[in-house]
Amino acid sequence: MQSIVDGSTRIFAILGDPIGQAKSPAEVTASLRARSRNAILVPFHVTSNDFDDVVRALKAIRNLDGIVITVPHKFTAFQHCERATERASFLRAVNVMRRSTSGAWEGDMCDGQGFVDAILQKGGVLTGKRAFLLGAGGAGTAIGYALLEVGVAELSIQDIDQTRQSELAGKLRHRFGDRVAEVGPTPDEFDIIANATPTGMENLQDSPVDPRRLRPTMIVGDVVTATGETALMRAARSAGCVCSTGHDMYRALRETMVDFLLSSD
């Protein structure tokens, strides 16, 4: 029987601040083992001040084959990639990095695909709909791009950081034109609510929108992977919305990440 970890085990790292909420170490390791890989994903709590030094050190570890990136490092991690997928290059952010056979580090940004796939798996229809995106950080950037790619008619962006909000709107408008707007009308005028903020992670009772604004015809997606149901998801289920939780998104995303990590070219 194969031991859990031995000298030939291949290492993958996940970096974040905080990191205690991450479910990826156990679940990605299980996926790797299911593919008959002697490999493990190890969590590291890394602050922004230490991130660059840590990544440089990890790259020097010869039995380390890839890195998973979580909050708040997705933009900074892009700078450590010698190559990147088209979507990651456009967004200038990555959530997964791998060492290629040539030794070059390649990155991809899968968060948006995971968000969209989770909604589609729930039976949600995105094409032609009006979407309200809360949060313009790493996950929000990828989700906004993916929603526009899949064909939403309009994307309105809101972030507490006005500069970040405007920068994302400008970037996406350059690619997708006047389908992109900032802030927009109240949430109840949209078909899709996409929460890409951490609201609800620390306090399940916090909601990024007024739950009374939700309608049964809406699709509500959340990136939060809290233990327990967030106020947003509870209100959306009660209203009869199509609901996709952060856990749904992660399940849709996980195999895409593992596929990328194991494809060295």
Rank of each mutant, 00 (worst) to 15 (best):
S3N: 05
D6K: 00
G7A: 11
G7P: 09
A13L: 06
L15V: 07
L15Q: 02
G16E: 02
D17V: 03
D17K: 07
K23A: 11
E27M: 15
R35D: 00
N38T: 02
N38P: 01
N38H: 12
A39I: 06
A39F: 06
I40C: 14
H45L: 14
H45N: 10
V46S: 00
T47G: 10
F51E: 04
V55N: 01
A57G: 15
K59H: 13
A60V: 12
I61Y: 14
R62N: 11
R62M: 07
R62G: 00
N63C: 05
N63D: 13
I67V: 15
V68H: 03
K74M: 10
F75Q: 13
A77R: 02
H80I: 09
H80R: 05
C81H: 07
R87C: 09
R87V: 14
S89N: 11
L91C: 13
A93L: 10
A93V: 06
N95T: 05
M97A: 08
R98M: 06
R98Q: 09
T101F: 12
S102L: 10
A104T: 12
W105M: 11
E106F: 04
E106T: 09
E106R: 00
D108L: 10
C110F: 14
Q113G: 01
V116L: 10
V116R: 01
V116A: 05
V116H: 03
D117Q: 11
Q121L: 13
V125D: 00
V125K: 15
V125T: 15
L126R: 03
L126Q: 04
L126I: 09
K129Y: 07
L134Y: 11
A136I: 05
G137A: 05
G138C: 07
A139T: 13
A139F: 03
A142D: 02
I143F: 03
I143S: 01
A146D: 02
A146V: 07
L147D: 02
L147T: 01
L148I: 05
V150Y: 05
V150E: 10
G151P: 04
E154Y: 05
L155Y: 04
S156Y: 06
Q158H: 12
D159S: 07
D161F: 08
E167F: 11
G170F: 12
L172V: 06
R175M: 12
D178G: 00
R179T: 15
R179V: 14
P185M: 10
P185H: 13
T186H: 09
D188L: 08
F190D: 01
D191N: 11
A194Q: 04
N195D: 08
A196W: 04
P198M: 08
T199K: 09
T199W: 03
T199P: 00
M201P: 00
N203M: 08
D206F: 07
V209H: 01
P211M: 01
R212K: 14
R215L: 15
R215M: 14
P216K: 13
P216F: 09
P216E: 09
I219R: 02
G221F: 04
D222R: 01
D222A: 05
T225C: 14
T225L: 06
A226W: 09
T227N: 11
E229T: 15
E229Y: 00
L232R: 03
R234G: 05
A235M: 08
A236D: 08
G240Y: 08
G240V: 09
H247T: 10
D248W: 11
A252T: 03
A252E: 02
L253V: 09
R254W: 09
V258G: 01
D259V: 05
F260S: 02
S264F: 15
